[in-house]
Structures are given as structure tokens and as C-alpha cells.
Simulated assay, not measured.
Amino acid sequence: MSPTGPPEAAPGQPAAEKSTAGRRPRWGVLALAGLIGIGMVRQGVSGEADGPPQPGAGSALFPGDLPPGGPAPPPLPRSAPARVAIPSIAVSAPLIPLGLGKDGWIEAPPADAPRLAGWYAHAPTPGENGTAVIVGHVDTRSGPAVFYGLGALEKGRTIRVTREDGRTAVFEVYGIQVFDKRKFPARKVYGPTGRPELRVLTCGGAYEAGSGYAGNVVVFARMTESG
């Protein structure tokens, strides 16, 4: 859904900016083509007067930042993720696969299931070599949703993704930042790093009635172990 559409706190994420030929590139070239961020819209009726927490300056990435050093564990084979857990912010949510809508944007998790998150099924799965992507609502008409607290996450915290093959990919957070959705740094967010990575996204930044959130909260994490 477009961020200028109906106010439903749902992801609206174009697959990629249009190429010079006027066609949208496939996911495999996203790192080069660019990608606009999720355009979620806050309802403003969640009962949380100050809105969702936002990342502090100390959590941000800076130009040239790379994942922390150290050997990466071997990548896992492809397997659909079943559940994501972020213990430090009390998240434990089932995951559903998301594709693209007719408008070329990633489909939203169901609005009537605010504790559900989704993963982009045409990207690497969590644990594979490459950048996996998980998205979720920040709030809905009924109140805070699954990733309401994402902006409060801190560097060094753990994200665990349980996969359908029974294995668990464990990721360490190394950056949390809000990006203006009009200037979304696709190469920085989605570009490959040569190891299994994870991005978790929801909306964030300033909120204005009618236009919604101005930005996207993006969590950067690298796989540190698997079981």
C-alpha cells in the first residue's frame, strides 16, 4: 500500500525504484537499483501519547560502517522462517511469507493480526548468505502492534529466527536507525555484505495526521550462530 493511501498501519514498500527502461528490477538487483522504505501510517489512536520509541543517536550507523568483525558462521541452506523472537523488547511473533502486490509494493501482514510479522519471500531466508527482510506493523486501530518497541532496541541485542527446517538463526544487532522514506538509502540497507544478514523494519520518525510517519526504523543485524 502507498503511504498516501488509507491510514492503515501497514507496510507499503515498492520492490524497487524504476529502472531507466521504466521497468522495476527484480529483487536480485535491489542493492544496485535502490528501494524505497516501508510507508506505514500511524493511526494516532493507540493510547500511546508519545508514539513508539525512536532509536538514539548512539545506535545509528555511519558512512562506511560494516558489520562487526569476526568470522561468520557458515550460511544455512534456504528454509522458510516460522517465528521471530527479540527477547529484549518482548517480541515473539509468527512469520508469514509476503510477496508483491499489483502496485509492486510488498504486501502487508493482515491488519487484523497486529502481532503477526512477515518476511519477504523473494529475498534470502534468514540464515542464507545475503540480506533477509522482516517487516511488521508498528500500531493499528486497536493499539501498539508487534514492532511498536523496535526503536528501543540496542546494539548487541539478539534476534532469533526459528526456521521450518528446525534450525534457529541467531543474529546480533549492530545498528538501529530511522531513515526518511523519501531518501531511503537502499544500497546501505539492502546491499550484500558477504555474509548472512537480517533487516527488521517498521515505521518511525515524525508523525503527521494525513501523511503518517515520515520515516522507517531499520534494524541491522548479522548472523552470529545457528543451531
Rank of each mutant, 00 (worst) to 15 (best):
V91F: 04
I176V: 15
P71M: 03
M1A: 12
Y120I: 10
A9W: 04
P185W: 00
A123L: 11
P77W: 04
G175T: 05
E8P: 01
A152K: 07
G5R: 08
G12I: 04
V189F: 11
A21Y: 05
G210R: 10
G34Q: 09
D50Y: 02
V135Q: 11
I86G: 06
G58W: 09
A57L: 13
G37V: 03
L100G: 02
P94E: 01
T162Q: 15
N129E: 14
V218G: 13
R187V: 10
E197Y: 03
G47R: 09
R167E: 13
P11S: 04
S88H: 05
L98N: 07
P75K: 06
R157Q: 11
V170F: 03
L100C: 01
P25W: 06
G51F: 05
A16W: 08
E172P: 02
G37P: 12
Q43A: 00
E197V: 00
P185I: 00
V41P: 04
W105N: 14
P110N: 05
I159P: 02
P53T: 04
P74T: 00
P185V: 01
P7N: 07
P109C: 05
E107V: 02
A221D: 14
Q13T: 15
G136N: 08
E128T: 03
V170E: 11
G104T: 04
D50H: 04
E197H: 12
N129F: 08
Y190S: 07
R182G: 06
S79C: 05
P71V: 00
Y190P: 03
T4D: 14
G64A: 06
A108G: 09
S92D: 15
T162C: 00
Y120P: 00
V200L: 13
G70V: 02
I176P: 09
E154L: 11
V84S: 06
E225W: 04
R24A: 06
N129I: 03
V138R: 14
E208P: 01
A206Y: 10
P7H: 07
D180F: 13
P7F: 01
V170M: 05
E197M: 14
